[in-house]
Design a binder for these strands. Structure first.
Lengths: 194, 194, 194, 194
DNA sequence: TATGAATGAGATTTCATTCAT
DNA sequence: TATGAATGAAATCTCATTCAT
């Protein structure tokens, strides 16, 4: 479901992958290019044959996730027709990115947003907007279908926050697998009939 | 409801307050001690008359919020008896801290957690645990009362995430006031009967 | 024998005494005026009502020892007539200052000499020269009397070094008292006949 | 006899050598990393490419001398059999290090000992102990052979002090060469028969 | 005299980035 | 491409000293 973001064959991708790991673990500001170099097995000076700057790395990592998530969400929604299934796809994509193979990069996208310069943020905003436009659409459908009484925009923010925050506490591989977590999140938004 | 965290009479408090503002706006790593000094009207060297290090400032800010939120939550729960009201108090305290006069410091507590050294994090964890123990208790009561079917621990994480995330999108002073936002969040957790 | 260098009744003397203690223990450069203040029970800013600068303190401490040692040596030599006794007086004064009540100040004089600015060093050199002129005289007498074959100047340097170094290893109050140490040093310079 | 401590081909060694020179001339505390950089022809920031901290430099310098002196003393004693010759080797090694090509580093080792943090001092103490164990051994032999009546430990301290102090007054290149100085020191310890 | 807040110069250190080899 | 030495700007922090109260 989540295609690998980085190709281990390509040196530049190995670099991005290692950087994402460190950025996620320690934060962007707290990670030095030396550490990135060490993680990938080269010296810091050599990094700059692959990227123009440290911020470039951050940008590239985020860009990859954004595109991939957008593709994944489109694919997920393509086969889902009823509002409940579509809403589940929304959550499922988000959680698979946050905790699957792309977890590091996704965590970076969600939590290091401010480390990016404003200009670069603006560039990424396009892809991000497209992604959230799909959310908005699905949530509006849910409201129209009477599944929720909450305003779609507000529900979007609440849900996005709740899911983004899972990266601080949810550890895959435990008792609760991703599918179960997805169900729980779905329950939060669409409680069972009473 | 939210007593002021910092006393403008005390130089050290002025410093902490200014630092919280900048940390919240720009992030801890992106804020220099020079900027903090400028914000409070002294030279950067003079900061260290009041604190031992930059990290000391971060720690002090967080410590203040933690104590204050704990007090506020205790006070809020003291007068609330039925599960629904108690749950509302939970949300209300959180949102008042996130968007009221203590917004900067609270934002820092929520979003700059990782900037703190591990040892210092451990010190703060005590106060934080007491706070979340109250959450756990209230949410368990709600579940017992049949207000929700979600596991209290999971509901706590979801709700905390959803609320914490509001600091990225909710701006007080707009069409939606804090009370209304609180109601919306309450609706998310306890949907109206259908 | 070693009159107290500092009068505990006088605030300035208390300050000098405390500073000597710290300078001796930690070195001049490694001691801050804050620490000196703390040691004497005032804040660092208040120090400067008693002295003009930190270096002033160092200078005053050294000045006191130099005068006192000169007086003590003169007194010690006044009653000694034969070369051996006079030589013993030389050593005795030195060791009593290095390990008696004036130990801190004397240690500072011996080992923090370079921390003083060149100009101030020059000022102190006068008193110091008078002291060493006495040494030179006594050692010359000893050579004339056939007690040693070493050149007086060289012997002076060797002996002074050996004694100065005791401040790094000799601890009074142990098995070896000051008199015994003095005898040992005397044995070094004037070995028993064989 | 005294193999060069620092290899001028290696940047790090050039740095250590320059630092030793400055530390010896001005003292560790009074020397800035800027000066060290200037002395070696790089900017101060570049120093930290080669060492982790200023104290690191001090440590490295001392470590080098300690190892080299230990080797030199072992070599010097290896060919010396009779107690007098062995004692002369002791003094000779010390004086050659104090005034030969390694003078700066040795002076730093002897006189800036306290500038090192306690932990680091402890690390160096091992090598230093081995060196002084050889002294102790040789001086004990001398005592056994009836060359001196002084306790070996005390003689060691006296002699070490007397020699260490030469770095404050003896200037090679004058009328008295190193061999002559060595003989004088030997005379101090083992006076000619009378 | 004492306080305590502030100064301001300067110290060490960090680190992304460059560049000759 | 990789290395490793160096840059240089800027960061945090130290600390003797001043001064209004």
């Amino acid at each position: 479901m989540t295609a690998p973001l980085f190709d281990p064959e390509k040196p530049r991708d190995r670099l991005l992958s290692a950087a994402a790991r460190l950025f996620h673990r320690q934060g962007y500001a707290a990670t030095t290019v030396r550490e990135i170099g060490a993680e990938v097995g080269i010296l810091s000076g050599s990094l700059f044959h692959h990227v123009k700057s440290k911020e470039d790395i951050l940008f590239a990592v985020m860009d990859r996730v954004i595109s991939a998530m957008l593709d994944a969400l489109r694919a997920g929604l393509a086969t889902a027709t009823d509002p409940r299934t579509r809403l589940r796809a929304l959550i499922s994509v988000e959680l698979h990115y946050l905790h699957g193979p792309a977890a590091d990069a996704t965590g970076v996208l969600f939590h290091e947003w401010r480390a990016l310069s404003e200009q670069r943020r603006a560039v990424l905003l396009d892809g991000r907007s497209a992604y959230f436009a799909l959310w908005q659409q699905v949530l509006t459908e849910a409201q129209t279908a009477g599944l929720t009484t909450l305003d779609p925009t507000m529900l979007r923010q609440f849900l996005h926050g709740a899911l983004a925050w899972t990266s601080f506490w949810y550890k895959p591989g435990g008792a609760l697998d991703l599918e179960a977590l997805t169900d729980q999140a779905l329950t939060l938004v669409l409680p069972p009939l009473r």
